[in-house]
């Protein structure tokens, strides 16, 4: 009992720094890990945006040739599409 009483406080004191170290490690790992989905989502959106702009541009050129107008302003993209799901 005496032994336990003398060993418990250092054990408790030791627990906190260990926990903080683990906490810090997990937090840093989680934030670093978040870069992966963020980058993928961003690159995916960039690709889709580029395709949408190119398609709109091609459509506009067809319209221009057909109507023989010199200029045409493509309609802005007003929806946010991600993996085929359009956001409001």
């Amino acid at each position: 009992m005496t032994d336990q009483a003398s060993t418990n406080p250092p054990a408790t004191r030791r627990r906190r720094p260990q926990l903080y170290r683990t906490l810090l490690g997990v937090a840093v790992a989680a934030l670093l890990a978040a870069w992966l989905p963020f980058s993928l989502l961003y690159i995916n959106a960039l690709t889709k945006h580029a395709v949408a702009v190119a398609t709109a541009g091609a459509g506009a050129r067809v319209v221009n040739v057909a109507s023989r107008h010199a200029t045409h302003i493509a309609a802005p993209i007003t929806t946010r599409t991600s993996a085929g799901v359009t956001l409001p």
């Binding site: 949408a52 929806t79 946010r80």
Partner: peptide
Amino acid sequence: MGSPSQQVFWF
């Protein structure tokens, strides 16, 4: 809207 740079917080 539509430009990915404007959706940074969403991503």
